[in-house]
Amino acid sequence: MVAPAPRRPGPSPCPRCGRTAPPGSGAFCPWCGRYLAALEWVATTPGGQASSPPQRRDRYTGPPRYRAVPRWGLPVGPWRAPAASDDEPLLPVHRARALAAQLVPVLWVTVVMSLVAAVAESWRYGLLLLSRTDALSADAVGWSDALVWFGGWSSVVAAVAAGVLTISWSLWAHRAAADRAGARAWRSRRRIVAGWVVPGWNLVAPGSLLAETEHAALELPPGRRPSPSRELLVWWALWAACVLLAVVALLWRLRTGTQALADGVVLHLWADVLAAVTAWRTVRVVRLLTALLEPRAQGPRELLVSRQAANPDAVRAERAEPAPAGPPAAPTAAPDPAEPSRG
């Protein structure tokens, strides 16, 4: 509440005795002493001013109208942060890490789709075995064909997407490893891409490329021959087997005959299983090499070292405070107990 404010000026009759005070008699009644000014109490919020009456809003009349077509507007396309002139380009290690973050989910999708394709091929092979002794249901055959079609094409699309991202990641990972080792990347971009896609060459080139990347990321001597780790050797063997089996499965489709079709189903089944395993091992290799390019600090470590000494006096001597640095003092003879001290 705020202090009362007078409502209207001028003399007014006293509300207690009803008499009108003469002009100039003051704010109190000269006969009964009551306060004569009329009061108006205004309630306000603590620490604030009196609330003003709400303003009346006009009725909505629709969107604004212009006499001519406005010249202003937003640019076409998504919003992009303006690139400053002093911004430094991204380092190869940052590009490799960003591509690895996109590649790993796509590889997991490849694993799932390859397993779906393997299940579809196994179902089809089971139907082939049943068809030797009994007639098959049209619904079962239809669902089997649909699942084979979906699993086959989805696994192919996922594998192609994963392959494109893998090649891009290997390009920047190779350059980042060379920068980390303080050397120059001797493989060009065309050579790296050709090593992934050229038939025959893609059996050995990807493994040697990742072996060099691992060698440089570990900061080993550049003149020393790279020695791949066990994780990389396992991936290399799976990669070569997957490529060879995929080529054999494609060439097998050219054969005709009932037995050739049944063998082709089994071949596609093992090709899908091997593709899923290879994609899973690729996830591990990508994570391993990306972590080697720029290992993250894990914080300080506390290492407790215990030592047992054979002589306890040696331990006490080591725990004693060291003597202050200075020139060695001359040796003095021990005082004789029989000789009186000189004060």
Rank of each mutant, 00 (worst) to 15 (best):
G182L: 01
D139L: 15
A183M: 15
A159F: 06
A185G: 04
D145R: 11
W153R: 05
V193I: 00
S188L: 02
W123C: 15
A161R: 04
R191L: 05
D139A: 15
I167M: 09
L130Q: 15
L128T: 14
F150R: 07
R175N: 08
A176N: 03
H174F: 14
D145E: 10
A181R: 02
G126E: 11
A177P: 05
S144I: 04
V164Y: 07
G152T: 03
L171T: 10
W153Q: 02
R124C: 12
A173P: 05
D134I: 13
S155D: 03
V164S: 05
L127E: 00
V193K: 01
W196K: 01
A173G: 06
G182K: 03
W143A: 11
V160I: 07
A183Y: 15
W169R: 00
A183L: 06
V156L: 12
R187G: 00
S131V: 14
T166V: 11
R189Q: 08
T133I: 14
S155Y: 01
A146H: 04
R124F: 15
R191W: 07
W149A: 12
R189H: 07
L128S: 15
S131W: 07
S131Y: 12
R132P: 10
A176L: 02
S170T: 13
V193R: 01
G126V: 11
S131I: 11
G152W: 01
G195C: 01
A162R: 01
G182I: 00
R175G: 09
W149S: 10
S170Y: 10
R175A: 10
R175D: 10
Y125G: 11
W169S: 01
R189M: 09
T166F: 11
A183H: 08
S170G: 10
L128M: 14
S154Y: 02
G151V: 01
T166E: 12
F150P: 05
L128Q: 13
F150A: 07
A194N: 06
S154V: 06
R175L: 11
G142M: 05
A183G: 11
L130E: 14
A178W: 03
A173M: 09
H174A: 14
Y125I: 13
V164R: 08
A181E: 04
R124P: 13
W123Q: 15
I167V: 12
A183S: 14
L165G: 07
A194Y: 00
Y125S: 14
L147N: 01
R191K: 09
R190T: 08
W123F: 15
A178D: 01
A194F: 01
D145S: 06
W196E: 00
V164L: 13
R180Q: 02
R189C: 07
W186Y: 09
A135P: 13
G195V: 00
V160Y: 04
R187M: 09
W169Q: 03
I192Q: 01
W123V: 15
W153N: 08
G195W: 00
A183F: 08
A161M: 06
G142K: 05
R132E: 10
S168K: 14
D134Y: 09
D139W: 12
H174M: 14
V157A: 08
A159D: 04
A161S: 02
F150H: 05
